[in-house]
Amino acid sequence: MIQYYFDWSVIWRSWDKFMAALGLGLTLAVISLAAGTVIGLACAMARVYGPRWLSWPVWLYVEFIRNVPLLLLIFFVYFGLPELDISYLDKTQSFILTLSLYAGAYMTEVFRAGLASIPRQYMEAAKAIGMRPWQRQRYVIMPVMFRITLPAFSNNLISLFKDTSLAAAIAVPELTFVARQINANTFRVMESWLTASALYLITCYVIATALRLLERRYASIR
């Protein structure tokens, strides 16, 4: 095997770039999770409580997103929207749109499962003390469901953060893109990819740990 001499100076010189890229990736993930939560909540409610004609478009949306590769969705939105004369999204915004729709489909399933797993007795107890339908949703169903779905939130945030790596394919300057750029410019293959890997790993670990602490705060309610 060929000897490899590590030269980390390249990395230190581009450290700001790495940090900016990491920040961008996290931002993309958080925005998409937030948007996806709204979409998911709306779709789950539509499927569970809504009229029947609403439930199959939701099903179609969820199944389409879940069965089509994310990279294809990214290209589809990025190159396809201008074809429909919608061309005021830049590549970052286009990626956020895609990842939000993507997150929305997965969150729909999360919330649907969450709603389904709420024991019927809670609803009956809420009815028994005379709560109105929206009160039952607001004070009983939603709080319980959010606690049930909390682990799914952290899992989804981590997956979405990892998925932001695909933004590199449309030249959004997040971690993978930067690593690849530095790799190409400096030929420091190991250094650039080890740095990117380490940053991904550490970030995922930090997110997981932070959210586990959050979960533990609410774990008493089951």
């Binding site: 060929i2 990892k162 932001t164 790596s165 590199a168 993978t176 190991m190 990819w193 991904y200 790993l201």
Partner: peptide, 23 residues
């Protein structure tokens, strides 16, 4: 745990460039 904390794309790029680098 390592594999689950890594984006697949990074893994693919790393493998590809890494193997190429070691000829």
């Amino acid at each position: 745990d390592f594999m689950r904390g890594m984006p697949v794309l990074v893994l693919i790029l790393f493998t590809y460039y890494g193997l190429a680098m070691f000829r």
